[in-house]
């Protein structure tokens, strides 16, 4: 060894002092880095800022702030929205994976329990006869119904999305115009986002090996069209528009109604606003 001639005590002292200095520097660096990183790690993440290589020409995502409204008092549970979404967005043809779904809440006379089902319920699938078309079975026709209503559900495109926070690669992100999207070319398929979403809005596409969910039909809205589910709704239970435009359907919907969001306690700050839902809905 080259340092053999050095007295061992001095060498040890030198080593320890170097180690001490290194530890101090590392500690300082980690501390500084932590201070810088902490705001970013918080759930309150910022949306993507750069328009970059946007596929639709003449679309400026900094000029819009999309929002979605659901008037549950209008929904008749026809499920046209669910079928339209499946076709428009190439959602797997089965009764277990949806970008949007409709829930039915039924209160029966002398029964304190609320009965909830959705189009995927085996009884409803049996009534529709296939997993391509969806119907709500008339299962309560012989019962005395106190109260019943439908609630359309979809991704809430939260301002502080838990799914975006946990994505290890950044494949899922929030756009400048307020839509949460997934880059299917970058998603590794770990499904952490599926677990993190408190609304059950995400599913895993086994064939593509990636997570998937509602995009508010981003390919349509950036061309000035409505999302497919809004387009086909026969009763206007689904409302969509630009919150930056004070006269848009969504702005009027929010202004003219007492709206609420699902699970506000999560801090996710959803951007799907509901009217006419009951205490059991979450």
């Amino acid at each position: 060894m080259k340092n053999d001639d050095k007295p061992s005590l001095a060498a040890r002292r030198e080593f320890l002092s170097k180690l001490g200095r290194a530890a101090t520097c590392t500690g300082a660096a980690i501390g500084a880095a932590a201070l810088g990183v902490m705001p970013n790690v918080s759930a309150k993440s910022e949306p993507a800022a750069d328009a970059g290589s946007f596929p639709t020409k003449d679309y400026d995502w900094s000029k819009h702030q999309w929002g979605f409204g659901v008037d549950a008092t209008k929904c008749i549970g026809c499920l046209r929205c669910v079928e339209a979404c499946k076709r428009e967005n190439d959602v797997p043809v089965n009764a277990h994976q949806f970008r949007t779904w409709v829930e039915r809440y039924v209160h029966l006379e002398d029964d304190p329990e609320v009965h909830i089902d959705s189009q995927q319920d085996p009884v409803n699938i049996e009534a529709s006869g296939s997993e391509k078309e969806f119907r709500f079975a008339n299962r309560y026709k012989d019962a005395k119904v106190d109260k019943a209503f439908f609630v359309p559900k979809l991704c809430n495109h939260c301002t502080h999305p838990a799914c975006v926070q946990v994505c290890p690669t950044g494949a899922t992100y929030r756009t400048e115009d307020g839509v949460v999207l997934i880059d299917h070319g970058y998603c590794i398929g770990c499904r952490y986002c599926v677990q993190a979403c408190p609304y059950g809005a995400r599913y895993f596409n086994e064939e593509k090996g990636v997570s998937d969910k509602c995009t508010w039909c981003y390919h349509r809205i950036t061309k000035g069209l409505q999302p497919a589910c809004v387009e086909v709704c026969p009763v206007g239970a689904r409302v969509f528009g630009d919150q930056n435009d004070k006269q848009s359907p969504i702005s009027l919907f929010i202004r003219n109604n007492r709206v609420q969001v699902l699970r506000p306690e999560t801090g996710n700050a959803p951007n799907v606003f509901y009217v006419g839902i009951d205490k059991e809905v979450n």
Binding site: A43, C167, I188, G189, C190, R191, S211
Partner: peptide
């Protein structure tokens, strides 16, 4: 087990090359 579980194991290093800092998994 994680690699076997991934939908795209060939992209596993995406989380290391371009880690998303808010993700515990990254």
């Amino acid at each position: 087990p994680l690699l076997l579980h991934l939908g795209h194991p060939e992209r596993a290093f995406n989380s290391t090359i371009t880690p998303h800092l808010t993700s515990a998994m990254a």
